[in-house]
């Protein structure tokens, strides 16, 4: 059974079909890319999957259950976490608190336990702290843990956002342009990191990216979106040679390497 399946997923804003009849299918453990020109509807699909928008039509089945109509926090609790194209960290909070907040719904103690500082509060907080610091260590963000998130360098902010999404312990991770604004060296490191967390956390990953070296380098399968519709689907080598894709999107840059610093 597929981990995530969308059938006929469609949303229109006014008269505009932002996403039309999209059928995605992700197997457990896959690393799938979602590419397409600007405005093709990639982020809109993420917003549909995470409950930010409600589809006009269609079905989203995750782990055998429908997600349509659930609120974003319920979807996160079902096991989907995401990052944002325009980083959305809790800027004025410490790096550590950013991670701790994502552990929130796994915490077991209630409000009264917190107010009266009962033993379960101390146990719960200790567990959250330990797990958060572990995650920060993995992401090499430990030295910054008491810094405000907004004061981190850009690349670190991107990494922190991925770490925060992982703290929610998802089965499926959605990454919205994780390499945006990174230099080639940072992008390379990011690729290694994404591959590594997939193994380590037993994740399925769907990622939107403009950096073709990253997409072609790590994705096992790619969906190409244009004007809200899937125009091609398959392994990187097929996509690279697909006429429609070349026409719609890659234009003359079919050599595998896209221009640096694609739009963010």
């Amino acid at each position: 059974m597929a981990l995530l399946e969308t059938r006929d997923l469609t949303i229109s804003f006014g008269g505009l079909m932002a996403v039309a009849n999209v059928d995605l299918c992700l197997q457990q453990g896959e690393l799938v890319g979602l590419i397409g020109p600007n405005g093709a509807g990639k982020t809109t699909i993420f917003n549909l999957l995470t409950g930010v928008y409600r589809p006009t039509r269609g079905e989203i089945i995750f782990n055998g259950r429908s997600l349509v109509g659930l609120k974003p926090y319920q979807i996160t609790q079902r096991g989907i976490a995401r990052t944002f194209q325009n980083i959305r960290l809790f800027g004025n909070l410490s790096v550590l608190d950013n991670i701790r907040i994502a552990y929130h719904w796994h915490s077991r103690y209630g409000i009264l336990n917190a107010i009266f500082r009962l033993p379960s509060f101390h146990q719960g907080e200790a567990a959250i702290l330990a797990r958060s610091q572990e995650l920060l260590r993995i992401f090499k963000l430990e030295p910054y843990q008491y810094e405000k998130a907004k004061n981190l360098p850009y690349g670190e902010q991107r990494r922190l956002e991925i770490a925060r999404a992982l703290a929610a312990r998802p089965k499926l991770l959605l990454l919205d342009e994780p390499a945006a604004g990174m230099n080639p060296q940072e992008t390379k490191e990011l690729m290694t990191l994404i591959n590594w967390i997939r193994q380590e956390f037993d994740l399925t990953i769907l990622l939107i990216e403009h950096d073709m070296s990253l997409v072609m380098g790590i994705c096992e399968r790619i969906y190409v979106l244009d004007y809200g519709q899937v125009i091609a689907e398959g392994p990187p080598e097929d996509i690279r040679n697909n006429e429609r894709v070349i026409e719609a999107y890659l234009g003359r840059e079919v050599n595998g390497v896209a221009p640096q610093g694609g739009k963010s």
């Binding site: 930010v52 974003p72 996160t76 960290l89 809790f90 800027g91 909070l93 103690y109 409000i111």
Partner: peptide, 26 residues
């Protein structure tokens, strides 16, 4: 005591970025 718990942090997360807070399961 409320604020220095996961529940208080959930409130502060809403102040900082409501959409991100909701996507983090709050």
């Amino acid at each position: 005591n409320f604020l220095n718990s996961t529940h208080g942090r959930a409130c502060v997360a809403i102040r900082e970025n409501e959409i991100a807070a909701e996507t983090m399961g709050i």
